[in-house]
Design a protein around this nucleic acid. Sequence first.
DNA 1: CCGTGTTTATTACGGC
DNA 2: GCCGTAATAAACACGG
Length: 297
Amino acid sequence: MPRPGRNTYSDQKPPYSYISLTAMAIQSCPEKMLPLSEIYKFIMDRFPYYRENTQRWQNSLRHNLSFNDCFIKIPRRPDQPGKGSFWALHPSCGDMFENGSFLRRRKRFKVMTSEHLAPSKPSDAAHYLQQQAKLRLSALGTHLPQMSSYNLGVSQPSTFKHPFAIENIIAREYKVPGGLAFSTGYPLHNQLTTAWPHMYSTSVMDSAAPISMTSSDYSAYGVPIKSLCHGGQTLPAIPVPIKPTPAALPHHIHAFLSNSPQSLSPTSPQTATSQSSPATPSETLTGPASLQSVAVH
DNA sequence: CCGTGTTTATTACGGC
DNA sequence: GCCGTAATAAACACGG
């Protein structure tokens, strides 16, 4: 409306938060992690609004990356060119967004507290560390497989109950192992174009798979499409986040990690103090498990 | 130096 | 009105 003859919606400010936008960007790439500059690029490519005042919104975006627990920082491989780290989504942030709206998250994502996932067995800690070592290798080595989950006791960190969740929206790009499209009849296609008028249909959106869905498909709301952020598979792939996420780890594990050469930064005060919201009442994996054909354990 | 990352503060808005 | 979330501004540190 600002400029009738031109791009109509396109140069309006998209109704999505920076968190949403960032999540989109991250989810849009196969590796599920992007350097800051690529996140910028993604947003600018798709949302013309953000081609201006870059200083302002990029500052805000960086603020969000650092401030929100839902983003984790992944170190760059030494031999990889470029500045800064990669950014990824925390595996447990799948249901961050309100159903049907990206304007607001349902709740600020916080890392889980130790009470919620403490393995409590030392062997678990060892196992965890082993996995982390592998993870780091795989991530820093070649490319990440698709998704990941820390899998440290947080068996079901969250469920994908929202067809409009950011991950689901972008998810059409995903190649789920075994070729299983996770789309599963969600109202993706139409909704995308209507719900995201601000977005340019570039690679992410226009490769629309032949998903025919009707409004009746909304009944799928309760279906846990857990394949994006959590990898569906039990396969963990995300490397050790730089971000401390101290509360997320059992103490003995955390102690371990502190010794890691990665030299985690000191715990962030705000994270340590509040241990609110299990964020898992949605734990109720209701839908037909047949949908994802992936182990949900 | 500039891009990146962290942190604090302020303001606005919506929900309860 | 309070509280939580988000947007914005700004200061600062760090590293290539």
